[in-house]
Write a protein that binds this DNA or RNA. Structure first.
Lengths: 156, 156
DNA sequence: GTAAAAGCTCAACCTTGGTTGAGGTCAACG
DNA sequence: CGTTGACCTCAACCAAGGTTGAGCTTTTAC
């Protein structure tokens, strides 16, 4: 860390600096703070100051969003990070591992849908009684009590 | 088709019947009609009447939604269906084939993200300079002019 | 020392995909 | 013929994830 970087670390980043370095709009940073996703303190003139850690936090938030995790869930996960010390690699890895499961599930759901869709392109999608798309696998597997798209195959 | 089914076909389904047979709320059917996704005519008392075709249309809409296609795009695609005759299996298959491409792309994006995330769980996600999650592959591949998450790897 | 740039708060607005409710009409059953 | 239940329209509301703008203060640069 250079001397000027040490000063930076003590004074903190301004909201504009964080926006530029993270690629996130200032309004989004305000929004994230209001939603409890990030934190800041204020300087004498009521301007926000951020610690260096906020950059990694924002990176994690954006990755989780890409994985399809809603902000509220991300906020919950971030609250499980240690408050006393700066989170380390292991802490971040724990969050990632949790989200990987959700991501796996989403990929599997979409992959199943794609396979069914592929089959139906060949068979005249949605026109045959046996079409799996008409009766989503999940609802069927759950015992048929789910909200079936069509109550009887003869409907179409 | 039984005799009563023939009468049904002439008179059309009521909105309540379509809701029950399709598993979609009445308010949603009104909404879909307002958005140009489905059509109806009116009986003497200004009540909506639907042709049997609407059921397949709704099935297709819901499948496309599951694939992540926004309603506006679905509406566009549905407008390419023949207006003169009842769409046949080939017509529906064409739409499905188009959406399959989008679905493929979404699956690939998520799969790449998962693989990167997996790597980072092992490596101490987001803490190392080489972490691919910090600099999404797409932006990099596009020539680096995209909105990079962090301008310099040394930021974190 | 002054002007521009950056920051502040708070409320309003945006899109997507619908749901809810008020106030009124239509239809079907007994 | 009356009373339910189904239907109508239109406007308001919801959640998520932000963006925009007005009006005011602070900081920075010349």
């Amino acid at each position: 860390m250079t001397k000027s970087e040490k000063i930076k670390a003590l004074q903190g980043f301004s909201v504009g600096e964080v926006a530029e370095r993270s690629g996130v709009a200032i309004s989004t940073l305000h929004f994230y703070e209001a939603e409890g996703l990030i934190e800041s303190w204020r300087n004498g003139g009521n301007h926000r100051r951020y610690s260096r850690d906020v950059l990694r936090r924002i990176a994690v938030i954006r990755v989780a969003q890409r994985a399809g995790v809603p902000l509220k869930e991300i906020a919950e996960a971030l609250k499980t990070l240690p408050q006393k010390r700066t989170p380390n690699a292991k802490d971040w890895a724990r969050l990632s591992a949790g989200w990987r499961g959700e991501l796996d599930a989403r990929i599997e759901t979409l992959t199943r849908l794609r396979d069914e869709l592929s089959g139906c392109i060949g068979c005249g999608c949605l026109s045959l009684k046996a079409c799996p798309l008409r009766n989503p696998g999940d609802a069927l597997a759950a015992g048929g009590s789910g909200p079936l798209l069509f109550s009887s195959p003869s409907e179409i």
